[in-house]
């Protein structure tokens, strides 16, 4: 396109040095192992909790217990004593037995205790178990995220080491604020066909202009009628770009077929087209309607903003009615062309 390079190229290794990425991944791995430890701890809590639920379930089966085979908190060696140990400080205990086996004192938190029966205690413990489970789930989700993070760091490190570059190019479009929504593909194709229509008409009008300026009016009227007939029958038109058509017009009026080309939307052709358009607009001021937006949305996306003015595409006044019928093609938020307003 002959434009100066707009983008910047930065090698990935200059932004993220491989060593730093490695370090970051190591740190993330460390956090992962920390979290995994937490999960393990919670898991042991959960196991204790389920054991306790079983114990609490069994305790009221008898009026009192002196056997402690199912007591998880006492040394297994004491089981042979067949007496429960009642702790007396940490270093000593008395032989004893559990009484009131359906009465439990459960810590609710913050130093508050509640007297509960076995069933009520089991309910409390089950709720605790659910809480623990959800905590474990959360932690597992966090671990999963961290693992993705670590893999990303490792990937970045290897990419940086391989010398991958990042290419950054700013997209500038002065009409961008007007068209918030990008046209869909369907809209594109419709817009393009519309442009082609308009350009064909324009070409014909120019020819007419050069031949007989005064009869132009009628001639075009006729052309128009024919054209609209053709258009109404076939929607697929050969794609013509205005500038190239103009050049062709000047050089060889007779060879119209050579003007027909696919819209490559080159920036140079756009700049060329401008003066011609302006001249034409002086000659036919009242009939020229620019469908600037339509052409913009089609071709401007790929062009530099400075060269993005694709020229006005000329349209007859009576044609505008037709264009309005097909207007819903374009994004509805679009206002009527600014250029149109200026020229009128």
């Amino acid at each position: 396109m002959g434009e100066p390079p707009k983008g910047t190229v930065t090698s990935l290794s200059s932004i993220y040095s491989p060593e730093d990425s490695q370090k970051a991944s190591v740190r993330v791995q460390e956090t992962i192992s920390e979290r995994q430890k937490e999960v393990q701890q919670l898991q042991t809590f959960l196991n204790d909790n389920t054991n306790l639920v079983n114990l609490v379930k069994k305790l009221p089966d008898q009026l009192h217990h002196d056997i402690m085979a199912n007591h998880p908190h006492l040394d297994s060696f004491l089981i042979s004593l067949t007496l429960i140990s009642v702790p007396f400080g940490k270093a000593a205990f008395f032989p004893g037995k559990i009484i009131h086996t359906n009465e439990f004192l459960v810590l609710l938190g913050e130093g508050y205790y509640a007297d509960r029966t076995s069933k009520q205690t089991i309910e409390i413990l089950k709720r605790r178990g659910k809480d623990l489970e959800s905590q474990i789930e959360n932690l597992n989700a966090v671990i999963k995220d961290l693992k993705y993070e670590a893999s990303f760091f490792i990937e970045t490190a290897t990419e940086a080491a391989e010398g991958v570059v990042e290419i950054r190019e700013d997209y500038v479009d002065e009409f961008l604020d007007e068209e918030k929504e990008a046209p869909t593909e369907e809209e594109y194709s419709r817009i393009l066909s519309r442009i082609d229509e308009l350009e064909k008409e324009e070409m014909e009008s120019e020819m007419a202009e050069e031949d007989e300026e005064k009869e132009e009016e009628e001639e075009e009227e006729k052309d128009k009628a024919e054209l609209s007939d053709v258009l109404s029958r076939t929607h697929l038109e050969p794609k013509v770009i205005s500038s190239e058509k103009h050049m062709g017009n000047e050089h060889l009026k007779s060879k119209e077929s050579s003007n027909i080309k696919a819209p490559t939307s080159s920036a140079t052709s756009n700049t060329l087209s401008r003066p011609i358009e302006q001249k034409k607009s002086e000659i036919l001021p009242q009939r020229i309607v620019s469908k600037n937006e339509v052409s913009n949305s089609g071709s401007n996306m790929r062009n530099d903003s400075s060269q993005a003015f694709t020229g006005s595409i000329v349209e007859r006044t009576h044609n505008t009615e037709k264009s309005q019928t097909s207007q819903p093609i374009a994004p509805p938020s679009k206002p009527v062309s600014r250029f149109k307003m200026q020229r009128k």
Binding site: I84, A92, F93, V106, L107
Partner: peptide
């Protein structure tokens, strides 16, 4: 006395004879 069954769940315990203690 109260025996901790774990997870801060306590149950009452009775020591009928305190003459002997396990240290």
């Amino acid at each position: 006395s109260m025996v901790n069954l774990g997870s801060e769940v306590y149950v009452q315990a009775d020591v009928p004879d305190t003459r002997h203690i396990f240290v």
